[in-house]
Write a protein that binds this DNA or RNA. Structure first.
Length: 574
DNA sequence: GCCGTTTTCGGCCCGACTGTTTTCAGTCG
């Protein structure tokens, strides 16, 4: 079975969990967690790196030991160190760590003193009031554990960004109703535009925290107040979304915003940098001894450690600090840079709107062009177009372009890539189009080799322009298909075709790390809504967020080009 | 277990809140 980066990350996380329960050196535990994160955000397959004989200990956070373990996992599928730890730890203990309020110390106490190693045993013991007899436990701790067990709360649920945004907006509006509240910013992974968010970190400036906390606790969408102090509170909404609210004074706003935006890895790296300069950074500011040096703005925090401001989307400790140091930060693409959308459907297939409505909506957005790209005939469920119907649509678009001005409707297709790599429509009709988007909508479970060959063959087709949603993943629903994205990006650069970043909140595909690889290979990415209704054009902002996480600049994006430039680029591929 | 402008040992980011204990450990972000 092929080993994925996620598999290696999971092994390192499990080792870290087991080491925690084993009361190991906390920094050793952190090293494993750092390594797990490094694997998840690597971009390239560790498997490929190992097979190519690359030195993995060059990767940040990976030393000799961990490099050897990665190689071992790639070659054998197992990690002896993990097997050994598993043998010496009761099997259920790592799961207990996931229960809120239970950390390694308490899990260890439960096991040693009460022989508890499963959620069921824990539930029984809590019912029988045996937990509160343990040192360090008391009636309240016992009651909290019981409640968390019964409500099946864990730390693991994450919401898609677009879903979290709905709850965030309502809550922010509610908080704004307080007159004493000054600024409200949602920080955390939300501000970094991660595709999913685990919780909302809301930062508030106000004269006093107490009243804000009281107001928050009275919000009618709250299911549970987990903790509430004068400057900080944690609540859980009815949909299980956790919200952390923090109140700071304006003088600390920048430091707090930086602190609560994260990522954790980025913050640690910045603080280390501060430490080397004899400074201390916390959420209140930048300090030299007791003297405040900076903190009212984020810019001042970065400046204190000798860096320019770094955009939130880049803050993952994936090279942004080095880039800032060397004055090589990208000037990230913005929504305003987009001049058109290259992927939209109409009522002719599974869209909700007419050709005219799409054109009008695109024009209203100030765009110069929009491409109509229906599904092709194999996708019967979407009423995909055959040659005859596509020819008819081409005529309609020509007619529309003749009579309208201010927007150019491009003729396209989202043609199915068949299992053998052929396209689902004949060449003569594809030749009449401005662009041909190839898409995989079937046979997701082919072997890596077959899936890769299938897509590479499609990309070789003389009329192929753009690869739609390149990995096929649906966030939290369907894994990406197993495909060698390195080869696909290479092929795109050789062939002179493009990759889509599909903005649908469930897709956000191309992934950020692949955006970065495409950029490095000189492959332009098209940020497309895949609109099936006019409202879907709004999703472009999520795609822009993802593109920014992938370090893309306007120059790296296909649909920031003017119509003339775009047409020239599209012709090159046809 | 990683890492090095204090470099091969001895550090490793920093603080709020809770509950239990009475000055702090544990958990969490």
């Amino acid at each position: 079975m092929p080993i994925h980066n996620a598999d290696i990350a999971a092994i390192f996380e499990e080792i870290a969990d087991l080491l925690e329960i084993d009361n190991a050196n906390p920094f050793r535990i952190r090293a494993y967690r750092n390594a797990a994160r490094a694997m998840q955000t690597l971009g390239r397959d560790a498997r490929d790196l190992v097979e190519q004989g690359e030195d993995l200990s060059e990767l940040p956070g990976i030393g000799k030991e961990l490099a050897a373990k990665i190689a071992e996992i790639v070659h054998t599928g197992h990690c002896q160190a993990l097997e050994k730890l598993r043998k010496q730890t009761a099997p259920g203990l790592p799961d207990l760590l996931k229960i809120p309020g239970l950390g390694p110390k308490r899990v260890r106490a439960l096991y040693h003193d009460l022989d508890i190693h499963s959620a069921e045993q824990l539930l029984r013991a809590a019912h029988d009031h045996r937990l509160q007899e343990l040192p360090g436990f008391g009636p309240k701790t016992e009651a909290n554990i019981l409640e968390n067990l019964q409500s099946h709360v864990t730390h693991e649920q994450r919401l898609k960004l677009a879903v979290a945004a709905q709850y965030a907006d309502t809550l922010v509006d509610y908080l704004h109703k307080m007159k004493s509240v000054n600024k409200i910013v949602i920080a955390g992974s939300y501000r970094r535009c991660k595709e999913t968010v685990g919780d909302l970190d809301i930062l508030v400036t106000a004269k006093a925290g107490g009243p804000v906390m009281k107001h928050l606790a009275e919000y009618d969408e709250i299911a549970q107040v987990v903790s509430k102090g004068t400057t900080r509170a944690t609540v859980v909404l009815r949909n299980q979304l956790q919200v952390d609210v923090r109140v700071v004074e304006p003088v600390s706003f920048g430091a707090a915003l930086h602190y609560f935006t994260g990522s954790k890895a980025h913050n640690i790296a910045i603080r280390r940098r501060a430490q080397k300069r004899g400074l201390k950074i916390n959420e209140y500011g930048v300090f030299k001894g007791d003297k405040r040096m900076a903190g009212d703005t984020e810019e001042s925090v970065y400046k204190a450690v000798g860096l320019p401001w770094i955009a939130p989307e880049l803050r993952e400790d994936r090279g942004e600090i080095e880039a800032a140091e060397n004055k090589r930060l990208p000037k990230l693409v913005e929504l305003e840079d987009i001049r058109g959308d290259l992927h939209a459907h109409t009522r002719a297939t599974d869209g909700n709107n007419t050709l005219e409505e799409i054109a009008k909506a695109a024009q209203d957005r100030g765009w110069s062009y929009v491409a109509i790209t229906e599904h092709s005939k194999r996708l019967t469920i979407a009423h995909g177009l055959d040659k005859k119907r596509l020819l008819k649509q081409i005529e309609q678009i020509d007619h529309l372009n003749d009579k309208s001005s201010g927007i150019t409707v491009l003729k396209g297709i989202e043609v199915d890539i068949l299992e053998d790599g052929k396209l689902d429509l004949p060449d003569d009709v594809l030749a009449k189009l401005d662009l041909v988007i190839g898409a995989v909508h079937s046979k997701f479970h082919l072997s890596r080799a077959k899936q890769t060959e299938r897509i590479l063959k499609a990309m070789d087709h003389p009329h192929f322009t753009l690869l739609a949603h390149p990995t096929g993943r649906l966030i939290q629903q369907r894994e990406p298909y197993d495909v060698d994205m390195g080869r696909i990006i290479h092929q795109a650069s050789q062939r002179g075709c493009y990759l889509e970043l599909n903005c649908h909140p469930e897709r956000l595909d191309l992934l950020d790390t692949y955006c970065q690889m495409a950029k490095e290979a000189g492959v332009l990415v098209s940020i497309n809504s895949d609109a099936h209704s006019l409202a879907d054009f709004e999703n472009l902002k999520y795609g822009i967020g993802q593109a920014r996480r992938g370090w893309l600049e306007a120059k790296d994006v296909l649909n920031t080009r003017t119509l003339t430039q775009l047409q020239r680029l599209l012709k090159k591929t046809m």
